[in-house]
Every structure is written in structure tokens, then in C-alpha cells.
Amino acid sequence: MNRGLDLVLRRTAVALITIFCAISLNFLLFRVVPGDAVSNLARVPNSTVAQQQALRHEFGLDRSIGVQYVAYLRELAHGNLGRSFANGQPVSKNLGEALGNTLPMVLLGTVVAILAGIATGVLGAVRRGTRTDRALTVSSLTVYALPAQWVGLLLLFLLGGVFPSGGRVDEFLIEPSPWQHTVDVLWHMTLPSLVVGLTLFGQYALLTRTAMLETLAEDYVLTARAKGLSTLRIVRHHALRNAMLPISTLIALSLGSVVGGVVLIETVFSWPGIGRAIYSAVTSRDYPMLQGAFLVLTVVVVVCNYVSDLIYLRLDPRITV
């Protein structure tokens, strides 16, 4: 009975440990090669002496690594991720804003990709070996193989005249009403979301197809067929319901690559989100921002994985929670 509770506790522990590892690794990554970090300081463009001093203080390179680590953890516990070199604002504030811009755009694309991908994969599996299946698989594979940044450029090239070519809002819209603002944001969101959706779609369609094929070979599908149920009912109530277990796991695992795509897509469309924050942090060598953004992304992915684990536990009646 309490196997379920045990599992939840274990998953929670793993998630917390993973986040702790991410935090520690984040600390180490920026310090383990102090020589490089110091030499890189000189490459910060337009850096004043004061800024370089601040930076040295930021990294606390004169103190021992243990002391630095404790200080780092203490600051982190207070939500302090340092200050951005680029605009002098606290990193946490910058990232909060960026995350708020990223989430709706990514969510829209991902949800569309999941729905379309599952539908396509199911159709392919049900029609396995037919021309439909072949066409769907080939197109899923092709879409999967196209680099996200390239798809973004192509869409900008083809539809740049129709849709805005970048940014999140129209800067020339003076004092828009909330409604106008929403429409404006959605309008700007269309292309980046579409690219997020397209690049994920192929992957989801392919993995759904495989999961469905595995399920369709199970005995209970034969039982369902012997019961005279319609193909639609067999597929929906018997096959898909079981296939959703592996599918949900695989989708959760793909979140890491979603985040990777976001960096590229936001860069192409100048979407002021967390992915673009990483890009600008890299180009302007804004280390506190880079460090903060990486940490936030890792935590977001770990948390999403954790949530999907919990959903999995709910989906599978063999595990009672």
C-alpha cells in the first residue's frame, strides 16, 4: 500500500539532491578554472576598474573555496544571484522577467506539439505500414532533423512580412489597452511558438508511434478486439491509455532539449526570455547572468521532471499513492 508513498518520497529526495548538485556544479563551473575566469575578466567589454573590482568581490577569488561555497549558498538562500554586468540590475529580477516572457511562448508551442505529436504518432501506429504511416513518419523525422535556429530563420524569411520579425511587443504601440497588448503579444508569439512546436512535434510523433506499437501488441488489445469494440475505442481506451505511461516519461525527459531549443529560437526572434538572456550573457560575457540563467533553467527542468513523475504515479493504478 505505501509503496506509492515511498516512491513519492524517493522521487522528492532525488529531485532535491539533483537541484543541490546543480547548485554546487554551478558554483564549481565558474570557479574550477580560476585562471580562465580571471583572464576572462579583462575581456569584459567596457569594464571599468570599479566593475572589475566588483567582479573580483563577486567571485571572492581571494578567499578559500570552502568559504566561497558557504557564502554562495547563503546568498542563494536569500534569492541573491548577483548583479548583471550588462544593466546593473539584480540577476534574479532580470531572470524573473525573462522567465515570465519565456513560459507562455514555450508552453503554447509545447502543448500544440504534444497534442499534434500524439495524434500523429497514434495514427501512424494504427495505420502501420501504409502509405499514410510512411508519409507521417518521414515528415516527422524530417521535422525532427531540422535545426531549430534554421527553421526559425526560414519562417522569418517566408513569413517575415506577415508576422513581426522579432521582439515581444510592438514598441510603437502607444498606451495599448490590456486587450490590445494581449493580442500584440500573441501576434509576436506566433512564429517563435510555431518553431518550438514544429521542432518538438517530430520527436513526439516518433516516440508516440513506437509506444503505441508496443502497446498494440499486448494481450489486452486482443481481448478488446475480441469483445467487438470499435477500433476507435480500442485505441483510445485500451492502447493509448497504457501507452501514455511511457509517452509521459519520454516527454518529461525531452524537456532538457526543449530548453536548448528555446535558447536558439529566442535568439532568432529576439524574444526577451531566458534563452535570449543566456545568449546575450554569452556574447557580453555577463557571467552572473549566465550562471543565474543556467541555474534557473536546470531547476525548472528538474521540477518539471518531478511533477511528471508524480503525474505518472497517478496515471498508473499499479502504484497506489
Binding site: T18, L255, S257, I278, L290, L297, V301
Partner: peptide, 18 residues
């Protein structure tokens, strides 16, 4: 498991940038 969930591209970016 840790490397499986950590977003690979941002990780690569950070390391490559350093």
C-alpha cells in the same frame, strides 16, 4: 540521472563560454 535531466545545451554553452 543527474546528467539526464540537466538541460544539455545550456550546460554546453556555459562550459564552452568558460
Amino acid at each position: 540521472d543527474y546528467f539526464l535531466v540537466v538541460p544539455a545545451l545550456p550546460f554546453m554553452i556555459v562550459v564552452a563560454a568558460i
